[in-house]
Design a protein around this nucleic acid. Sequence first.
DNA 1: CTGAAAGCGCTTACAG
DNA 2: CTGAAAGCGCTTACAG
Lengths: 339, 339
Amino acid sequence: MSRVSSEDIARAAQVSRATVSYVLNDRPGRRISAETRQRVLQTARSLGYVPNPAAMALRSGRSDIVLLQENAWIPGPDQDVLPLGSTSGLLRDAVAREVRAWGMTLVSAGTGFPLGHALTHLMPTLVLAPAGLSEVDRDALRRSRVPWYEPAPPEGFPEAGSGGEAMSLTASLALAQVEHLRERGHRRIGYLNTSVEAVRDIAEQRERAVRQAASAVGVECDHRVRLGPVEDALPECTATLEQWMADGVTAVACFNDLYAGLAVKVLRQRGSRIPDDLAVLGVDDEAMSWMLEPPLSTVRLRMAEFGTHLAACGRAVLDGHPLPPLPAGLTPVVARATT
Amino acid sequence: MSRVSSEDIARAAQVSRATVSYVLNDRPGRRISAETRQRVLQTARSLGYVPNPAAMALRSGRSDIVLLQENAWIPGPDQDVLPLGSTSGLLRDAVAREVRAWGMTLVSAGTGFPLGHALTHLMPTLVLAPAGLSEVDRDALRRSRVPWYEPAPPEGFPEAGSGGEAMSLTASLALAQVEHLRERGHRRIGYLNTSVEAVRDIAEQRERAVRQAASAVGVECDHRVRLGPVEDALPECTATLEQWMADGVTAVACFNDLYAGLAVKVLRQRGSRIPDDLAVLGVDDEAMSWMLEPPLSTVRLRMAEFGTHLAACGRAVLDGHPLPPLPAGLTPVVARATT
DNA sequence: CTGAAAGCGCTTACAG
DNA sequence: CTGAAAGCGCTTACAG
């Protein structure tokens, strides 16, 4: 069965293709008799009409595709990969659901490729970049005049009295980590970051946010490291944590659950008590985090909810509306046994 | 800067658009003077020409998009999700790399949506379904005449003397699990499967494959369960494993590392020794599996290599060539402390 | 060896 | 209120 075109439905409904187009697109200023209108709608439905996306794209110079740019992997044929947690699919599916409600299609094209390629091949209407864009990608976007949304880098915390202004996800995450540790009585914490290249930007942003949060909350955070891929980082992590404990650090906030898991491993190996000798706090609430011994405390990122928000922001840039504020409660602490 | 069209390059190179098209597409049967040819190629390059994908798609009735249909999630606004391991992104990126070498673009559209929607919106040239397709999706594919590749369901194991015929990934996985356990001396094993709806097909295939592998190898595998989402399955898992141990089961093969992690958790809680009282073997080699206590033995799926193979199969169906055999060594055992 | 023309399926001024 | 026509950017018979 070949596709049915607007021509087909025009013929069947005894009107011109223009009329079909007008009623299907609900063009204002065009008065179509209610009767004709019904007939067209009817036949369109009964014929199972779906507009040809290529033709629409050719005409409008834009497809109905929204491109989700994920960039949390190191590509490469080897296993040299920092997997973004198992939660990243949640984001995509949530965004996909919203975008679909607009009558568009969300698509993601794999990471590690310059955006330019996907841009010319897909001609998306909008690009969504939950974790930010490289300057190169931003350039490509500007050149091809495709609108995009990426969260603003964390700008610090709302001023006192600003009336609950929006915080970035990163800021809210950092604050959740630091506040939780403070509540548990810690006054000197360390930050265990990653040096994996593919997530450098986000790692730097998080570290900055944690420092700001710490000083805002009255916690000292002068101890910080950046470790390579978790699989290889055990020795260095051991040395670091021993030093830190000697310096009076009582808790570590980690880039994510993987590094937190590493820290837990290190502490167990040397017989340290968790959290008494050192508390450990991750990020992501990975599927296996509660299976660690002891079960890992972590800050969850509500990915599905964040996805919905991300989509709303995209919609706003498309419509020229102001951006909606980040909803609260996106970064709940999951306190288990390591804090 | 608006896109440059073949018209532009025709003008600049002083030829007709037809000529441009002929040289760019290397049309055989058309003799274009080497000189003209060079000039066209030259100007195309210098102008940064990229064919308009919408126009190509409109003309050919097909885009240059390859759609990767992943289906390893339960969608839904709640957290009721079985995350496919953190390794799934590896697959996508590997396939994307191959597809890109064909001059096409790989795209994935999120899971939990009927394929029909993406089909009509994207008009892909090919659909790749690493984990198989539902009958509904297959119908949609047939109706829209889009070619697709999905691995054949496991058909059992090659006959003796068949000369190393291709095995499915599922079969090879199952065999790896069972053989490893046999080598470790186990003669009566259990299979800990998932009942999560979103992966029912794959769960059933794996279970069948494990049973076949067990009988092929001379191991008894009469003990099997299907547990719900890991987070809620602890009590049931406990009851099951206790029963099995009482029945003389000495090892469990699991659907994936999440369920294996659950089993480990259960055994620790009741003070059983691993692997002496019960050995545990997962699948996936998740990023956190080695952090468990004791570190989890598992079978890794070489996702990147599998992705390359998947792409090659897709290419073969596109070209009408015979399918390449599944490469060997895609499912190495990672023996750690639980077996 | 190269060019003029049709046509893929849509939308939207522009006439009636 | 509705229709005929142009045009988005490509490819490919079909003439020269």
